[in-house]
């Protein structure tokens, strides 16, 4: 080790021998990384991993208990059947809304990310600030603002009525359109940011080469730009789909009884009805479904990328 340390008369030859790896002092103390990890990982273990385990347990409680009398753990798998029986409509609707939201977010987010990353030039930083600008106000206020925009006497409804696209007593609030519009708006930045990150890394010379090879912007886009930005598309779709599937703010503020999502059901089962076993079962179902969908999606999208 002493040979690696430069001395006062250190020759240039000695300097080039220094390997690129952690300095001697850092390698000797193997406990250091564990000491750095311990507090944070302990926090996650106690307040993330263990609660999820507790949630799974709660989903198997005997539903005849209550908060006052306490619950007993009885491996009550029928909770899942009951939960599905009662709420499969809202459950499937949530996945469907989340899917539409994700697709619309890709369609809107891709041009925006492309414009910023490839064509942005000196506007790049300002445009990025514009993408995160919605985060500068409160999520709930933003959603309420959509409620105002889409309200029955608001400008959008007025215009649609004037254009005869909406009947005289037609409305937008309490429809699927309003809920999905709210979801799209609130999660669009989560789609744009990872897309921007992967498009920004693109070597623009590749695009020029693609133009030379494939003649025409459309083909070169689909054969070069899009495949190279797939990591961003995957990250963006996950960051949009996952929160959208569990959201209940948009459904609650912009929707009606016919647009209820599973989040609203879980929320009211937990906080209003206090029906913990069924609510926990719904929560676990949502978690497992998303986990399975995400795993399948990432593995298929990943292999396509390789091929």
């Amino acid at each position: 080790m002493a040979a690696l340390l430069p001395t006062a008369s250190g020759t240039p030859a000695a300097a080039t021998e220094i390997p690129v790896e952690p300095p001697a002092g850092m390698r000797r103390r193997r406990w250091i990384p564990y000491a750095l990890l311990a507090p944070g990982l302990l926090w996650l273990a106690v307040f993330f991993v263990y609660p999820v385990f507790q949630l799974v347990m709660a989903s198997l409680w005997d539903p005849s208990g209550s908060v006052e009398t306490g619950y007993t753990f009885t491996w009550q798998f029928s909770n899942y059947a009951d939960a599905w029986e009662m709420f499969h409509v809202q459950f499937l609707r949530s996945l469907w809304y989340a899917l539409i939201t994700t697709v619309v977010c890709v369609l809107l987010g891709y041009p925006l990310a492309y414009a910023i990353a490839i064509k942005g030039g000196r506007w790049k930083n300002l445009m990025l600030v514009g993408v995160i600008a919605p985060f500068f106000t409160s999520y709930l206020v933003r959603t309420y603002s959509w409620k105002a925009i889409l309200s029955d006497s608001g400008p959008v409804v007025d215009f649609l009525k004037w254009a005869h696209l909406l009947g005289p007593d037609g409305r937008l609030l309490a429809t699927e359109f309003a809920v999905i519009a709210g979801l799209v708006y609130n999660f669009l930045p989560f789609m744009v940011l990872p897309l921007y990150a992967s498009l920004d890394k693109l070597d623009t010379r590749l695009l020029e080469a693609a133009r030379d090879l494939y003649h025409g912007p459309v083909r070169s886009f689909f054969r070069v730009t899009l495949p190279l930005s797939m990591p961003g598309v995957i990250a963006g779709t996950l960051l949009t789909f996952i929160p959208a599937a569990g959201d209940y703010v948009n459904a609650q503020l912009l929707g009606g009884p016919n647009t209820q999502m599973i989040g609203s059901v879980i929320q009211s089962r937990f906080l209003v009805v206090n029906d913990y076993p069924i609510a926990s079962a719904l929560s676990v179902m949502l978690m497992v479904t998303i986990l399975v969908l995400v795993t399948v999606y990432v593995s298929t999208a990943g292999t396509e990328e390789v091929v």
């Binding site: 609660p51 949630l55 996950l238 209940y248 929320q267 929560s283």
Partner: peptide, 22 residues
């Protein structure tokens, strides 16, 4: 373990913490 909380819907984290605290 770092990735999981970001891939979990907030409602699942909220409900699981609630059951823990209860």
């Amino acid at each position: 373990l770092i990735f999981l909380p970001m891939a979990t819907p907030e409602i699942v984290m909220g409900t699981s913490l609630l059951t823990l605290f209860i």
